[in-house]
Design a protein around this nucleic acid. Structure first.
Lengths: 215, 215
DNA sequence: GAGCATAAGTATATCTAGTGTATAAATCAA
DNA sequence: TTGATTTATACACTAGATATACTTATGCTC
């Protein structure tokens, strides 16, 4: 299956990486707003026009890193054991991500990752552009849940959408909460038990409903 | 309590309205991207610089209309009967909004409102900037729920945040679903029973959990 | 009502993200 | 090597947003 990849293709990939790394480096050094496209193009030794051939917008220079994760929840559901409930698979996957300090869980204190968290959190333009990816996650998870729904479920399509929206929103909230505490200076090890407890509680709520606010 | 409002203040309010209405009118006529700030300033007979003194950005010319609703959920929870469960109050409020075809419910087919829906939905810049308001809704609702939580609830702060995030996400999803169907040409009257059923199902899921996806 | 401090508005210039177009250079296939 | 095609560049332009200096309008005091 190993495609040999022509020189053209390899060069393209290299340029992509060069630009992205130059951008992230400068952003981390000086902050997102203090770095212009011209600065990045100069650092990567390409023209401004070429930069936009590789990345559609300035924020994409940062956010393209999230693209890999946008169908993660859906994939987890699809690839789970056939008999296993989607919420169980997702819960287990989240616990694993926390345990292994996966950056996506928000609970990673590797300095480079922390700096990256800070960049995204403290730059409103990035934080708000991030919802594009969240929206795609909702769409793909909706489809995956729909496929896992029993056919006789009334309003099955809508229920799948509502469930997906809740799950993605909760995952985002958990990750942001962990990031905040990491950015406040805690270590991942110190936070992990708490983060696991919160994740478990979140899945209790998803599974069993918002009992503290029920009649 | 009637503040007399000096001439200066009244003029300010009038200018604010003039600019906003000129902007919306032009946007609805030609589309968001086809209208420049200069066009709006000319139509409202102010300078571009003055326009930015009233609205911080182009998207705010449209989205400031959502600002009034950003603490609606929180207010509903706070002003509910002391004994009543937050989810019951919110559910009732949502049913009422649908019944009265409140634009916020997504189920309003008054032509001007439909055109406004279309403007927001079909302009990615607006749709994504809208999350700013959603984030604020989450914050205010979190605080309101926190106040309504029993003191012995473990992880009370986090549970309040998780619940708020779920509720706001679900409300948004329901409104978007209604808007889509209205934009596809249905009338509000034709959709209302279905919209109510979906809202009820959504609150069943919030109250009782995502049972279709549980073990 | 006259005069003055302050607030609001304007003109002008500048910066930067993003796009269109035409041209030059590199790559690939024959 | 040559010819077709992709990729990169130079240049020009639009438009959102901000800074600065200047003018006009408002309202308060005497």
């Amino acid at each position: 299956m190993e495609e040999p990849l022509g020189l053209r293709e390899r060069k393209r990939l290299r340029t992509h990486r060069t630009i992205s790394e130059a951008a992230i480096t400068l952003f981390l050094e000086r902050g997102y707003d203090a770095v212009s496209i011209a600065d990045i193009a100069a650092a990567a030794e390409v023209s401004r026009r070429t930069l936009f051939a590789y990345f559609p917008s300035k924020d994409d220079l940062v956010l393209h890193r999230f693209a890999d994760h946008e169908d993660e929840a859906a994939r987890v559901v699809r690839e789970g054991a056939p008999g296993e409930a989607p919420l169980d698979v997702l819960h287990r996957h989240l616990r694993l991500a926390i345990a292994r300090r996966d950056p996506i869980s928000g609970l990673c204190d590797v300095p480079e990752v922390v700096a990256f968290y800070r960049l995204v959190v403290e730059t409103p333009a990035l934080a708000s552009a991030l919802v594009r990816y969240q929206a795609r996650s909702e769409d793909t998870l909706t489809a995956a849940l729909r496929a896992a729904t029993s056919p006789e479920e009334p309003l099955a399509d809508r229920v799948a959408r509502l469930a997906a929206v809740q799950i993605i929103a909760v995952h985002g909230a958990l990750a942001r909460a962990n990031q905040e505490r990491i950015l406040a200076g805690s270590t991942a090890d110190a936070l992990a038990p708490d983060a696991l407890a919160e994740a478990d509680r979140a899945y209790e709520l998803l599974r069993g409903g918002l009992q503290p606010y029920r009649s």
